[in-house]
C-alpha cells in the first residue's frame, strides 16, 4: 500500500514542477491529496501560518478553491480541502474568514455533494457533513470569534506566551 502512495506522491511532485506551482501551493496540494489519510496537524498548522503572508494567502486560497470544486471521484480532495479550510478559519489570518464569508456559496452548495463509488458506497456523506458544519460556523459570527479566541489562548498557554 505505501508503495502505491509513494509513487503517487512522486507523480504529484512532478506535477507541482511542470504546472509551476509554488512551494506553498505544493504544500496545500499534498495536504489535500488523494491519500486515504487526513492532512497532518503540522502540515495544516504550517499552511495556516502562511495565510498571514498576503502573497501566500492568495496562493493558498486559490488552491483550496480548486480542490473544493474537484470532481466527485476526487471526493477526498474536496473533503480534505474543507478540513483544511476549517482549520485555517480557526488558526489562519482573519483574511481567511473574510474570504470564506464572501464565497460562502462554494461551501454551502457542497451540502448536497454526491459521490457513490464503484462498491456503491456513499462517499459523499463526509463532504456533506463537513460542508454543513462549516456553513453553520460561517453564519454564526459569535461562535466563529470565540473559537478563534480559544485557539489562540490555548496556543499561548502551550507556548508559554500571553497571560503574563
Amino acid at each position: 500500500m505505501s508503495k502505491k502512495y509513494m509513487a503517487k506522491d512522486a507523480v504529484r511532485s512532478i506535477k507541482n514542477y511542470t504546472k509551476g506551482y509554488s512551494e506553498t501551493q505544493a504544500k496545500v496540494r499534498s495536504a489535500t491529496s488523494n491519500n486515504p489519510w487526513g492532512p497532518s496537524g503540522s502540515a495544516m498548522y504550517e499552511i495556516a501560518q502562511a495565510t498571514y503572508n498576503p502573497h501566500h494567502f492568495i496562493e493558498i486560497m486559490e488552491m483550496i478553491d480548486k480542490r473544493l470544486n474537484d470532481h466527485g471521484k476526487n471526493w477526498r480532495h474536496v473533503f480534505k480541502a474543507l478540513t483544511l479550510l476549517h482549520y485555517c478559519l480557526n488558526e489562519g489570518s482573519p483574511d481567511v474568514v473574510a474570504y470564506a464569508k464572501e464565497n460562502i456559496y462554494i461551501v454551502k452548495t457542497l451540502q448536497e455533494f454526491q459521490y457513490i463509488d464503484e462498491q456503491s458506497k456513499d462517499q459523499g456523506i463526509v463532504v456533506r457533513q463537513k460542508a454543513k458544519e462549516i456553513t453553520n460556523l460561517l453564519l454564526d459570527e459569535d461562535r466563529l470569534n470565540s473559537e478563534r479566541r480559544q485557539r489562540t489562548d490555548m496556543r499561548n498557554r502551550m507556548t508559554g506566551r500571553g497571560d503574563l
Partner: peptide, 14 residues
C-alpha cells in the same frame, strides 16, 4: 438532475 451540474449553475450566479 445531477447535483454537480446544478451546483455549477448556482455558483455561476454568485
Amino acid at each position: 438532475p445531477k447535483q454537480k451540474h446544478v451546483r455549477k449553475c448556482i455558483v455561476y450566479t454568485w
